[in-house]
Design a protein around this nucleic acid. Sequence first.
DNA 1: CAACATCCCTGACATTTGTCACGGTCGCCT
DNA 2: AGGCGACCGTGACAAATGTCAGGGATGTTG
Lengths: 205, 205
Amino acid sequence: MTDTPIRVLLADDQALVRGALAALLSLEPDLEVVAEVGRGDEVVEAARRTGPDVALVDVEMPGGDGIAATAALADAVPGCRVLVVTTFGRPGYLRRAMEAGASGFVVKDTPARQLAEAVRRVHAGLRVVDPSLAAETLVAGRSPLTARETDVLRAARDGGTVADLAAVVHLSEGTVRNHLSAAIGKTGSRTRAEAVRIAEQNGWL
Amino acid sequence: MTDTPIRVLLADDQALVRGALAALLSLEPDLEVVAEVGRGDEVVEAARRTGPDVALVDVEMPGGDGIAATAALADAVPGCRVLVVTTFGRPGYLRRAMEAGASGFVVKDTPARQLAEAVRRVHAGLRVVDPSLAAETLVAGRSPLTARETDVLRAARDGGTVADLAAVVHLSEGTVRNHLSAAIGKTGSRTRAEAVRIAEQNGWL
DNA sequence: CAACATCCCTGACATTTGTCACGGTCGCCT
DNA sequence: AGGCGACCGTGACAAATGTCAGGGATGTTG
């Protein structure tokens, strides 16, 4: 072990969880939490200011999600490795996080003792990925939805009518219905709502 | 201060969060985490075995949610106060938690430093409630949905067709449509999916 | 260039959905 | 008993939804 601790940045929107994770990591003598933020758009600034070795970022956050924060961080502070933590083990999340430059991906179901070890491995340049989730990602494959289909389905999440969607996405109603139909077919569902649910579970939105 | 620490039981389905909360509370000299469980139906058994003073239970859990666990706990181990912790500040959650016998209700957005203090207050017999959420609960009021309407709406969450719902709830299709129509009216929405969303946001399901 | 694939868009069609008016049963309360 | 409210069911109608065949624009590949 070296004598300089690993500097960690913490990004999670739930203050209680954030503080608890800080307490957990502070128990390890070789780890030091140097910054905590609660929004995706505060990550880069905090990283610039404090120069952490590893950033622990949640996916679900206001102000730009953790994936966007990961990409921005990899671009702005290349020396900082990113370990993504998330509540939901969505296959698409893992894929997109890795493509955005993350070094590791951990779900919040993993035992607490393993977190510090994951941080150390990431800092050492290794990749940390939940094995079962990796398998799921392989079978699930990339999102089959086209750009517009994704837009429309994302707009359909709050359950509005076709007219509402058309207004939001600036398309004709008929076109919206077509995209929805395509999405329903590709997700193997029978309803718009079901298509939304499936796409969300796979992290395609 | 007395010399015997407050004994705390921790119930949260996410192992990482559970462990982190344990680490956070263990920093306080007057608190001692005596049990950790990850399912709602393990709470009572663990409480019987370890006899905690305060139980910290999450609402979202497999094996019966935190509300049910709270009710069971108040019945089986009356000496143990319950502090409910949740990700979502749904007004209905607060109301039902209180009616089930909880002594406190905290959302995961609250600063980490306040958690230990909340545990102490609950242990002292005081009530701890997020003020803004309490206000929301008052204006939102009790769920206007009847029992069957709730059933149907709950079954409609995964986006199936009316025929699917009818099969699940053992009702005729026309009746299902009627209940859905009533729920749509009561929630002030224009779509079944929207009604589901609103009812879920208010904790009515 | 021609063939091809992909995406976006439109309009017409059958099905599903949401609404309404109505009758009937059951349990509860005055 | 009578009134009341919640629940279940029916039938019918208008509106929204999902499906289909096809046209146009674009980029890619042989």
